[in-house]
Write a protein that binds this DNA or RNA. Structure first.
Lengths: 336, 336
DNA sequence: CTGAAAGCGCTAACAC
DNA sequence: GTGTTAGCGCTTTCAG
């Protein structure tokens, strides 16, 4: 059933059917009626691919993320879906195993998906190659938690440095002196920013950061578990662990449990992001909230605004909030 | 940049360029080479929408689910993505707030997304209207956890009845006699099946099911919390709660905590599905495992097989496994 | 207010 | 091996 069939059936031209279906003006009520009836009788539905070809719009918006299964990824996706509800755009999920390795191929992939626009999560959101390829390909984008090239494309941001400083300061204030850090994936820019933030808090408190207390993780639960196990297995173990996200903090919690340590009595643990995991963990995690859902809504909004050729906010900064829960307490007193 | 530009640049016809890009045979190596160079020089990328129009294939596969944010939804999606990796198909996420209410509009929505095929999760997977509309629209599908119309379309199944019977039997074996049930969304077929399974276990043990011990939930955490609160607030409270999924079991856990009850000492709680939540909860949930990820992989495979006109398995049954964790124990002894 | 003609960029079917 | 012709189903001119 094509537009031609409907046109014949209604005794009008194809163009008129097109007008009716696109709510264009200048169609008499009678004709409109006849066309609608003919379409209903023939169970006609416009061919979306033909429309896409001629309009040069697929109405597809992509979400690019390394690890969509994480709590962070879910929240992100829910934000995009929330903004897309009641809009004539669909969400295509584009998982990329390793953005750093495949940066050169990413935009080719997006192109072959015929996307009108994309929401870029870290670390793609900070990748200069991807950003410039995207522009050349004419694919609109908006970015989640960018840290650099802030005028290259619209982005949402948080102050990683300050957020990291605050959560480290909280741990220090509790009385901890021997504090270990589990870093995130080195290909994410926030890994460095957060580390610097922790460093500032240490410095302000007159503490020195011991490099042998910094473990490399990958933002995954398992990497957090392994890193924490390394830190906790020695007799000389830290009294607190600062993980660069909740997923790794949960891994640390699991490692502590495996070693028979109680949290927070023997060990304090903090995360970052305040994803759902943080409340679900036992004890619930002290962390710093990053409004991922809201950022995803805003980024999606920025993409749509571009597609509609509307005024686009180039940058939107979000506030973080320190969330104190049960995974932190004063360090154990060794000398009594 | 179109195929014509490349053809001109390489001094061949458009069809030849098409042949090269589609790896068709009968193109001499030299020509192939020239075409590739011309394409590279012009930064040519085939227009996917034009291909889609003429091939009648969008290479888009949809995942229809009511609540993609849940742990169950995430697992489902990861299964689909896993099967789609390295395939030239993309995943479009189609959340439907209430399948029961909008059944008549669902296929129109899918149609307007130009999907080649869809994976249907409950309760869409059991909806006759959706199934028949899908067939009329020529959209291939495969279903997750279907319970009926098993030859209407390919499906994956588990034995809800047996699984429910087993987990209820486990609770009964622990010595519980006063057992409450939190039902799931009544528009899902498994709600009834599982209830019947619990009933069979009760009957086999010579217990009667008290209707005033059956609460209606909606498969959401909050509905589980509210239902459990109702059950637990009376002085005459049950010693065990059987929830029809993990999400509601977690809600029950939260309700118990709010009322100062310890699990499993004062109250045993079990769920269903064995999603990630079950291991994350504290105490971890006794539940019955449904291999959602595997089922999603299989369903996606069934969709792809249809698109490739290959032989399709019409039904694939999965085994459930009783998983005993910390949320269940013998009931408290009242008489000592 | 309505319609005819001309594509959008690509590929199927057939020639040569 | 390679090119030609004719669409895919729709929308965009531009006439009337």
């Amino acid at each position: 059933m094509t537009i031609i069939d409907v046109a014949r059936h209604a005794g009008v031209s194809a163009k008129t059917v097109s007008r009716v279906f696109n709510d264009e003006p200048h169609v008499s009520a009678g004709v409109k009626q006849r066309v609608r009836e003919a379409a209903a009788a023939l169970d006609y539905h416009p061919n979306v691919m033909a429309q896409a070809l001629v309009r040069r719009r697929s109405h597809l918006i992509g979400l690019v993320y390394e690890n969509p299964s994480s709590s962070y990824g879910t929240e992100l996706q829910m934000g995009v879906l929330d903004r897309l509800r009641d809009e004539p755009y669909r969400l295509v999920v584009i998982p990329i195993a390793s953005v750093a390795e495949h940066a050169a191929e990413v935009v080719g992939l997006l192109r072959s998906a015929a996307l009108d626009g994309v929401v870029l999560a870290p670390p793609a959101s900070d990748n200069p190659r991807i950003l410039s390829d995207l522009q050349r390909a004419g694919i609109r984008c908006a970015r989640i938690a960018s840290t650099r090239l802030l005028d290259a494309a619209p982005s949402t941001t948080i102050d990683d440095l300050a957020a990291a400083r605050e959560i480290a300061a909280h741990v220090i204030e509790l009385g901890h002196r021997d504090i270990a850090i589990i870093k995130g994936d080195p290909t994410h820019a926030s890994t460095e920013a957060r580390l610097l933030g922790y460093g500032q808090a240490f410095h302000a408190a007159g503490l020195t950061m011991r490099l042998d207390r910094i473990e490399q993780g990958l933002f995954t639960r398992e990497s957090g578990r392994v890193a924490a196990a390394r830190l906790l297995e020695s007799a000389d173990r830290p009294s607190a662990i600062i993980a660069q996200n909740d997923e790794m903090a949960l891994g640390a919690l699991i490692a502590a449990r495996e070693l028979g340590l109680s949290v927070p009595e023997d060990l304090s643990i903090v995360g970052f992001d305040d994803t759902e995991l943080a409340q679900l963990a036992w004890p619930p995690l002290t962390t710093v909230r990053q409004p991922v859902f809201d950022m995803a809504v805003a980024a999606t909004d920025m993409v749509i605004a571009q597609l509609h050729r509307e005024q686009v906010t180039m940058q939107r900064a979000y506030k973080h909030v320190l969330i104190i829960r049960g995974s932190t307490a004063a360090p154990p007193r060794l000398d009594c």
